[in-house]
Nucleic acid binder design. Structure first.
Length: 395
RNA sequence: GGGCGUGUGGCUGAGCAGCAAAGGCAACAGACUGUAAAUCUGUCGGGGUUUCCCCUUCGUAGGUGCAAGUCCUACCGCGCCCA
């Protein structure tokens, strides 16, 4: 049963959406009652899926719920080339081994969002491993060098004299060919994918297929306001623990609140407006946002607990309920050694600096002298900064 | 293949023959607070018996200097121009 409700269609085509080509055509297709093949390609370039990426899966889920067929392309082949879309420098090439490692948990992560039983999952090595050189060259003939170079991030690199690998220019061809292989009616992707998605249209045309319509989504910024990217370390992963997830949301820049509500929660527009009116204090709005996000991936209970714990530790400055335990049989400890052994500091120099900066509390008392040996007691609590705690256990 | 450049700490980017190496970003910490925001301040290769000492870093390998990121040679990577 295909849902053709106008309102639903409108909703799916607006929230978090950057651009649609061709919009009129897509609306017509969605209203036709025909089951569409909605394609999303994802390269397993890192082990963890983050909530920015997850937006696209939520979008797919919406299509899925309307009765359309989701075709998920796992780019196990293309991951070895590296999409240049979001890169200002050449990406290091991933080995097959790394890719397989990343792949392992991919589907289970995606399964947290999509009903995988109804999804057509395809690995693009299926056709690329078999591709003949001659066919590849044929693909290359569809585009000119100028067309490819014109693309913004290539152009920037070109102008700045930064290297561009020939293989990088081929990436859009591969992604586009995927569309041909699965006969996609619609492809979605991040707004940085526009070029690749359009290549799909061209290549389908060349192969005398109906051209897919394309929809690009807004890009979610990372916690620090830069693009969310695993290599920047500014991501919230969908597998992050509730407390961690909650804390990360609380730590992000205030200006990001709006886009996070739009792209990472399921609250309706009016609900979002309501939340924003509810308090003048961004802290509270952020807390609400954090709770929404944690609920989605871990359930409401976990979200509530995460909030309580956060308030306890950060607002009320209390000791967390759970903390790692460090077992030792020493009676006396040289403080820098202790901090290193407990992994609270990466090196002794760093440990000393932390102590000198007044970041280290032992049983609630700030210790500023790292030369003084510490008398170790059972149940002693060491705190470094505001969120690293450890409890000592004597064995 | 020839010519000219270039290669610096997580990134970016200065660097005179005497530097653990300016500045910016990121990170970490402190103060403050609305929070792990913002702002301000400090730290930011490793180790030590710590107002000082030692070790390891500036593409790689050698060389010349009391001394080399800084000069020379070779090699590797990258860019530009010419072919």
């Amino acid at each position: 049963m295909i849902v053709t409700d106008k309102q639903k269609i409108e909703e799916i085509l607006t929230r978090g959406v950057e651009e649609i080509f061709e919009k009129e055509n897509l609306i017509k297709k969605l209203q036709s009652g025909k089951q569409l093949r909605i394609k999303l390609g994802i390269d397993p370039t890192g082990p963890r899926i983050h909530i920015g990426r997850a937006f696209q899966f939520w979008k797919l889920k919406a299509f899925q719920e309307m009765g359309h067929k989701i075709v998920l392309i796992i780019g196990d082949f293309t991951a070895q080339i590296g999409d240049a879309s979001d890169k200002q420098a050449m990406r290091k090439v991933l080995s097959e081994k790394e890719i397989n490692g990343n792949l392992k948990s991919y589907l289970s992560q995606i399964g947290k969002i999509l009903d995988l039983k109804k999804v057509e999952v395809r690995y693009n090595s299926e056709w690329f491993k078999k591709m003949k050189i001659k066919d590849f060259v044929t693909l290359q003939m569809i585009f000119t060098a100028q067309q490819t170079i014109q693309r913004r991030n290539f152009k920037e690199r070109w102008d700045e004299g930064k290297p561009i690998g020939l293989h990088e220019l081929d990436y859009p061809l591969f992604q586009g060919y995927d569309s041909v292989m699965v006969k996609a009616d619609v492809e979605i992707g991040g707004s940085d994918q526009l070029f690749n998605l359009q290549a799909g249209r061209e290549i389908q045309k060349y192969f005398k297929q109906n051209q897919q319509d394309i929809m690009t989504s807004k890009m979610l910024n990372g916690l620090d306001g830069r693009k969310m990217s695993t290599s920047w370390g500014n991501i919230i992963a969908i597998l992050d623990e509730p407390a961690d997830m909650f804390g990360k949301v609380m730590s992000m820049k205030d200006e990001l609140i709006d886009e996070y509500f739009e792209l990472t929660t399921k609250l309706s527009e009016s609900e979002i407006t309501e939340v924003k009116k509810s308090s003048a204090n961004p802290r509270d709005i952020k807390a609400r946002l954090a709770k929404e996000i944690v609920s989605i991936y871990h359930g409401e209970k976990a979200a509530e607990m995460a909030e309580e714990e956060f308030n306890k530790v950060h607002r009320d400055r209390e000791v967390p309920t759970d903390m790692p335990v460090f077992e030792t049989d020493k009676k006396e400890y040289f403080l820098p050694d202790l901090l290193c052994d407990t992994k609270m500091a990466p090196s002794k120099n760093e440990a000393k600096r932390l102590v000198e900066a007044g970041a280290v509390d032992i049983d609630d008392k700030t210790e500023k002298d790292w030369k003084k040996p510490v008398e170790v007691k059972d149940g002693m609590i060491i705190k470094v900064g505001s969120r690293k705690f450890i409890k000592i256990k004597i064995i």
